[in-house]
């Protein structure tokens, strides 16, 4: 049984148009995803593809005018808003992107202690600080006094100290020094190795591949492919979706082939394959409807022509 299962998740935002009419702006459509205990699943996508909304939807912290359909289960049981509220911070923890997510006026030790939900707060906080090589003096520091790497470790320490089983991690802010980045990603691998499920939100294939077991590729608000890390090899023939293949081939070591065009704006309801305008394999068949999800070679794909 998967730790987390997301089925047909769609999200739209309510917007009033004019006086009484209301409009819904769709942002995620019929998204599929699973995360097992002990594995790192990376969600890849360009910014604007809706990755963070997925994270917020799982945690149940979307703004109040969001409308959500579809089903999410945690350990086989449905995630209702009540259950989400109970699990937030207990079983499911978020590791945010940067130090900006820490209260600027609270010492970081105290913030990590607030994250601890079971056991002696101070002990657990100290323990996880030691685990991540954070000295005791760091406890009393304020966020602005931390270096980039330290801040990263504090954020992961908070998730570890919370005792959560499912970790949803937003990839560290770009621009972080590469060593720090590698170390930060390594932490998630360690967490998975001790039995947690990790959902890693990222926009960088190369770094995600260093730790992930499976990769879910998002395009225009939906998951177009779920592949195993091993599929990303050679010239990408093992990959299922043209978009994934294009991403893979755009990497410097794989030929640096650029993908022309721009992803569509959030908010458009797909009537065809959203990738069609940029896809070299597109045919008329792709324009009839949004391609359904299919299972293919122990993965998923949303492409009419994938084989």
């Amino acid at each position: 049984m998967a730790l987390l299962e997301v089925n047909d998740l769609s999200i739209s935002f309510e917007q009033s148009a004019g006086w009484l009419r209301q409009r819904y702006i769709p942002v995620l459509h019929q998204l599929q995803l699973t995360v097992d205990a002990g594995e790192v699943v990376a969600v890849l996508g360009a910014s604007g593809a809706g990755k963070s909304l997925l994270a917020h939807a799982i945690l149940g912290i979307l703004p109040s005018h969001a409308r959500i359909t579809g089903e999410m289960t945690y350990r086989g049981e449905r995630l209702t808003p009540q259950r989400q509220a109970a699990l937030r911070g207990m079983d499911i923890a978020l590791v945010p992107q940067s130090v900006a997510y820490l209260d600027p006026l609270m010492p970081v030790g105290e913030q990590v202690r607030h994250a601890v939900k079971q056991g002696n707060k101070r002990e657990r906080q100290r323990e996880s600080f030691r685990l991540y090589r954070l000295g005791e003096e760091v406890e009393r520091r304020y966020p602005f006094q931390l270096s980039g790497g330290m801040a990263r470790r504090v954020l992961v320490a908070a998730a570890t100290a919370s005792g959560a089983r499912l970790i949803i991690a937003d990839e560290p802010t770009p621009g972080l020094d590469p060593d720090v980045m590698r170390e930060a990603l390594g932490r998630f691998r360690e967490l998975a190795d001790v039995g947690c499920g990790v959902l890693l939100i990222s926009h960088d294939i190369a770094s995600a591949l260093t730790v992930a077991d499976r990769i879910a590729v998002m395009y225009a608000g939906t998951v177009v492919e779920i592949a195993r890390a091993a599929d990303f090899a050679g010239d990408g023939t093992a990959l299922r979706h043209p978009y994934t293949r294009a991403l893979w081939q755009a990497l410097p070591q794989n030929g640096f082939v650029p993908l022309p065009g721009e992803p569509p704006q959030l908010g458009e309801r797909p009537h065809a394959c959203a990738f069609a305008s940029r896809c070299s394999a597109a045919t008329d068949a792709c324009l009839h409807e949004q391609p359904p999800v299919r299972e293919l070679r122990r993965g998923l794909v949303r492409c009419v022509h994938a084989s």
Binding site: F13, E14, Q15, S16, A17, G18, W19, R23, I25, V27, S47, G48, K51, S52, L53, H56, L62, P63, H65, A66, P96, Q97, D170, I201
Partner: peptide
């Protein structure tokens, strides 16, 4: 990214045209 998500907050209940009308 999360910032991005929050730009949707400004969509909240009043759209641009409705606000202009107000």
């Amino acid at each position: 990214m999360i910032r991005k998500a929050h730009t949707f907050l400004s969509f909240r209940s009043t759209s641009w045209s409705a606000r202009r009308l107000q």
